[in-house]
Simulated assay, not measured.
Amino acid sequence: MVTHAHRAQPPRLTEDEFGVLYRRLRSRSAWAAGDRGALAVLTPAVVLAAAGEVRTGRTVTLAAPVDTLPGPDNPEPARHRMRGRPEEEPSSGLHFAMDSFSMNVHGDADSHLDALCHVIYEGTLHGGVPMSSVTADGATALSVEEVRDGIVGRGVLLDIPRLRGVPWLEPGDHVSANDLAAAETAQNLRVGQGDLLFVRVGHRRRRAELGPWHAARERAGLHPSALEFLADRKVCVLGGDGNNDTAPSSTEGVDFPVHVLAVHAMGLHLLDYLQFEDLAPVCEAQARWSFLCVVAPLRLPAATGSPVNPIAVL
């Protein structure tokens, strides 16, 4: 592991600089302008090749347990309510234990997928779809229903705290394109076209050891310029154990620049608030950081996202 002390942070972007970056990434991602965005590259041949990543048959979750307790990062927790509890029923005959569940999908605690209709920027959705397609009844275009058949491909985990020799990145820290390239080298792999790229910043480990904090105000994530690395490699999904965006924002006038660039400009489905604390030790032990990954969102027609439990198959 390489320790990086007193690291210089990537520069803040002005609105004009962000606009130049946005237009460049949108132009480079024109091939991903359809309803499935960058998932267009996940052809049957690519999925079949990804199946070759399975060596041991071990499966590992990339999701955190659904959080039903309020906290500074979870003011509107998921609600799980039991219905028809056994003690309410007679002891003889057949009965069923039942429950109901509700969630704020795009919160700062639970693992979820962002559909391509989630980000509205300058009056449009990804691919120039008008924002009027998102109505009071839901999204009529680019919803999570576009991925009803699941997302299956080669997953790659780049572990940035491992690279830097720290347990986690502190809130406000940025992952640069150079970090991603250095993690590739340190982990002896190369991110390629059609990969599902997962970037660990250690958010979940910090939360587990120090307790939750106001992650909407302070969190580690990618610097917007790091999206150039993703465009170079033509990845089709970006996932992180935080929000993928750093807070406070590194971009003048744009609170979630990575979301704008990834979802709106590049057509990437995002996976936010995953957890890699189960996966990283397995990858370390096997000295292998790539795997078959299966992502199966709920079928929620017209929804902007879905709770999700991605599975790595090693």
Rank of each mutant, 00 (worst) to 15 (best):
H4Q: 12
L13S: 12
D16N: 14
E17D: 05
V20H: 13
D35N: 13
A38F: 06
L42M: 06
T43G: 07
T56E: 10
R58A: 10
T61Q: 07
A63E: 06
P70S: 08
P70V: 10
P72Y: 13
N74Y: 00
E76M: 12
M82I: 15
P90Q: 14
P90S: 11
G93H: 09
S100L: 03
S102I: 15
G107Y: 00
S111D: 00
A136Y: 09
R148W: 11
G150K: 13
V156N: 03
L163E: 06
G165E: 03
P171S: 07
D173V: 08
D173Y: 14
V175D: 03
D179C: 06
E184K: 12
N188C: 11
G194Q: 01
G202H: 04
R204D: 08
A208T: 13
P212L: 10
H214I: 11
A215V: 09
E218I: 05
G221A: 11
G221K: 03
G221S: 01
P224L: 01
C236S: 08
D241Y: 00
N243T: 04
A247I: 09
S249H: 04
V263L: 05
A265P: 06
L270G: 02
C293N: 10
A296Q: 15
A303V: 10
N309P: 09
L314S: 08
